[in-house]
Simulated scan of single mutants.
Amino acid sequence: MMFCIEIPSIHQDIDGCRLNLTIGGVRAYNEQNLYSRKAPEKFRIFIGFKNMVCCNLCVSTDGYKASLRVMDPDALLSSASDLFRSYDMERHLTQMAAFKECRMSESQFAQFLGKCRLYQYLPSSRKKQLPELLMTDTQVGLVAKSYLDDPDFGRDDANTISLWKVFNLLTGANKSSYIDNFLDRAENATALISGLCMALYGDPEYSWFLS
């Protein structure tokens, strides 16, 4: 079960896309033993932005709590309030706005997709040496297709693409995820694109995806 509450009075425009502040959470019943004695219940909660062009969710690390275990509604409200207070909205918006200033050539984008597919088959020991990638092989295929077909976030006439658009291709593909993985992958997409942006300027941490 997932819930989202938009706060449209707080919004920002990035590259022609209106982003509305959104809060929400997930309760995945598959992670709960419904037949056991009363135990802490697990939730995932977030605060971030919804892109109103495509309804993609933009979630940052400081706006997401992946495992919240509480015994009652008061504890849930208290923990959610703590998360909302600690969320740095301006930093998140600045981070996303910077994505549109970073661009990939088509060959770099193809290299990135190829490395994303290769990542799925790396041994665990090698994956531990690299930044985490949660996107599935099927979702990589959706990103490739949307690069060619998406009228809002696909390639431009010069066969280049901004990382803001790549970010939205990733979050768009993420909509195929089950709810128990959805928020983890949304947050991972933000970290991945932020890392790629730095890699384009020479930072080594995410350079494997472009080399």
Rank of each mutant, 00 (worst) to 15 (best):
E6L: 15
V140L: 05
S125M: 13
R185E: 11
S60L: 05
M52G: 13
F99I: 02
K175H: 09
S207I: 07
R37C: 08
I5A: 14
G141M: 10
P123C: 11
A189N: 02
E31Q: 02
M135S: 12
D13L: 04
I161M: 05
C58S: 10
T61I: 05
I45V: 14
S125W: 13
V140M: 08
N174I: 07
Q12R: 13
S9W: 08
F182L: 13
A98K: 12
M52D: 11
L148H: 10
D15M: 03
G25V: 03
Q95M: 12
I7T: 09
Y121T: 14
T171E: 00
A110E: 14
S86L: 01
T171S: 05
L196P: 14
T190W: 07
G195C: 04
A66E: 12
Q108W: 00
G16F: 09
L113H: 09
S60K: 01
A144W: 04
L57N: 03
T160L: 12
M104K: 11
D157N: 14
Y29C: 02
K175R: 13
Q111P: 11
L148V: 11
L57F: 02
V70S: 12
S78R: 05
K145A: 08
E187Q: 12
F99D: 03
I179V: 12
Y29R: 01
N33A: 08
M52V: 09
R85L: 03
D82A: 01
M96Y: 02
N159K: 03
R37W: 07
C58E: 00
A98H: 15
F46R: 13
Q108Y: 02
S107C: 11
N20T: 14
T136L: 11
S67M: 05
H11T: 05
A158H: 10
C17M: 07
M71L: 09
D149M: 13
P204D: 05
S67V: 11
L133Q: 10
C197Y: 03
D13R: 01
F209Q: 00
S211H: 04
P40C: 11
D157L: 09
V143N: 02
G195I: 00
L21T: 03
Y64I: 04
E101R: 07
A110L: 15
N30I: 04
N188I: 15
L134T: 11
D184I: 09
G114M: 09
C58H: 03
D150E: 03
K175E: 09
L34Y: 11
T190C: 15
I193D: 05
L210D: 00
F99Y: 06
R69Y: 07
M71K: 15
S176L: 07
A191P: 07
Y121R: 14
N159C: 03
L183T: 08
F182H: 08
G25H: 00
M96C: 01
D15W: 02
T138W: 15
L163D: 04
